[in-house]
Design a protein around this nucleic acid. Structure first.
Length: 307
DNA sequence: AAGACGAAAGTGGTTGA
DNA sequence: TCAACAACTTTCGTCTT
C-alpha cells in the first residue's frame, strides 16, 4: 500500500517534484511537463491511497462521525451540539445539516433506523468516493443528496448501495465531475441498471437539479488521457461549441462527441492519435468515434489533412 | 502489420400506446 | 406492460498506408 505514496513524489517523466492536485478531475499532474501522474481510470484497483498530503488531510476531515471506525456510535454522537467531540466549533454547513436532520428526527420518531441507515450509507459513500477518487466537496454533496432521498422515503425497499451510488452520480453531474454511470456502477454491488433506476427516481422525486451533460465537460479529460496539448484540447472544445450551436449534439452520447472532436483537433494540429486510442480514452468504440467525426467534419465543413 | 472504413446484426434504454 | 425506435456496440471483411 505505502509504496504508492512513495512513487508519486516525483514525476516519472521529467523528474519534477512539483505535483499539482486537480480536485475537479481527481488527478495529480506534474507542474513542469503536465504529465498526468495519477488519473481515474476504469481499471483502478484499491490503491486509492496514493493521494497528495493535502488530499489525505482533506479526506481525514470527513471526521469521526462518518468513518468506518465508528459506525455504531454514530447515532448518539453526531448531532445537535455545535461542537465536535473535542469541543471545537463545527462548520456552519454541517450545523445546518444537523439541525435539519434533527428536526426530521423529532417529527418522524424513527431515529434509530434513520441513523443506522445513514451510518451504513456513509460507509458506502466513503468507499465509493475513495475508489472513484472524488474530491471532498463532491462527497459532501452526495451525502446531502442521499439524505434528501432518505427524507423522501426513496430508500425504502431499495438497497442503500444503489441509492448511494445514484446520489454520487447525481453529485458528480451537478459538480461537473466527469464520471460515467458505468464507472460508478462498476464499484457497486448493485447492477448498473439498479443504479440508473434509482438515479432517475432521485432526480424526479427530490429537487436535485442536474445540468445536462455537455460533451465539452468530457473533452479535457479525454485530451489529458491522450497527453494532448492544451491548444488541441481548446480546439476540440471550439468544435464542440460550434456543433452545439448547430444542434448536432442532441441525443448523442456526449463522450462519443467529445472523442470525435478530440480526434479531429488532434489531426488538425498534427498530434495524431488513432481512432482506437481516442475511443479507449473516451470509453466508447472506434465505430462511434468514426461515425461522430465523419458527421462533425461534414456538417461543420472541416477540411481534414490528407495523410 | 496496423489503421481506417463501412455494413450488418445485436444490445440496452427511451417513448408512446 | 409491450412494441417500436434511435443510438451505440460488436464483429467482420475490405481497402489504405
Amino acid at each position: 500500500m505505502e509504496e504508492f505514496e512513495e512513487t508519486y513524489h516525483k514525476c516519472p517523466i521529467c523528474g519534477g517534484t512539483k505535483l499539482i492536485y486537480d480536485p475537479t478531475r481527481g488527478e495529480i499532474i506534474c507542474a513542469e511537463c503536465g504529465y498526468v501522474i495519477r488519473e481515474r481510470e476504469i481499471d483502478r484497483g484499491p490503491e486509492w491511497r496514493a493521494f497528495t498530503p493535502e488530499e489525505r488531510e482533506k479526506r481525514s476531515r470527513v471526521g469521526a462521525p462518518i468513518t468506518r471506525l465508528t459506525p455504531d456510535s454514530l447515532s448518539t454522537d453526531i448531532d445537535w451540539r455545535s461542537k465536535d467531540a473535542a469541543g471545537r466549533e463545527i462548520g456552519l454547513k454541517k450545523k445546518i445539516e444537523m439541525l435539519r436532520l434533527r428536526k426530521w428526527h423529532i417529527r418522524a420518531r424513527v431515529q434509530s433506523s434513520i441513523e443506522r441507515n445513514l451510518s451504513q450509507a456513509s460507509i458506502e459513500l466513503e468507499r465509493l468516493g475513495s475508489q472513484l477518487g472524488l474530491p471532498q466537496y463532491a462527497m459532501d454533496r452526495a451525502l446531502e443528496i442521499y439524505k434528501k432521498a432518505l427524507e423522501t422515503g426513496l430508500v425504502r425497499g431499495r438497497s442503500i448501495e444503489s441509492v448511494m451510488a445514484a446520489a454520487v452520480y447525481a453529485a458528480c453531474r451537478e459538480k461537473k465531475i466527469p464520471r460515467t454511470l458505468d464507472e460508478i456502477a462498476k464499484y457497486t454491488r448493485a447492477g448498473r441498471k439498479d443504479v440508473a433506476r434509482c438515479y432517475r427516481l432521485l432526480v424526479r422525486e427530490t429537487q436535485v437539479k442536474v445540468p445536462l451533460p455537455s460533451p465539452i465537460d468530457f473533452a479535457p479529460r479525454i485530451g489529458e488521457l491522450l497527453k494532448l496539448s492544451t491548444q488541441t484540447i481548446k480546439k476540440a472544445i471550439e468544435i464542440l461549441k460550434k456543433a452545439q450551436e448547430m444542434g448536432l449534439t442532441a441525443g448523442k452520447d456526449p463522450a462519443g462527441l467529445a472523442a470525435a472532436a478530440i480526434y479531429i483537433a488532434a489531426l488538425l494540429s498534427g498530434e495524431v492519435r488513432t481512432q482506437k486510442e481516442v475511443a479507449r480514452a473516451a470509453q466508447v468504440t472506434e465505430v462511434t468515434v468514426r461515425n461522430r467525426y465523419k458527421e462533425l467534419a461534414k456538417k461543420l465543413k472541416i477540411k481534414l489533412p490528407i495523410r
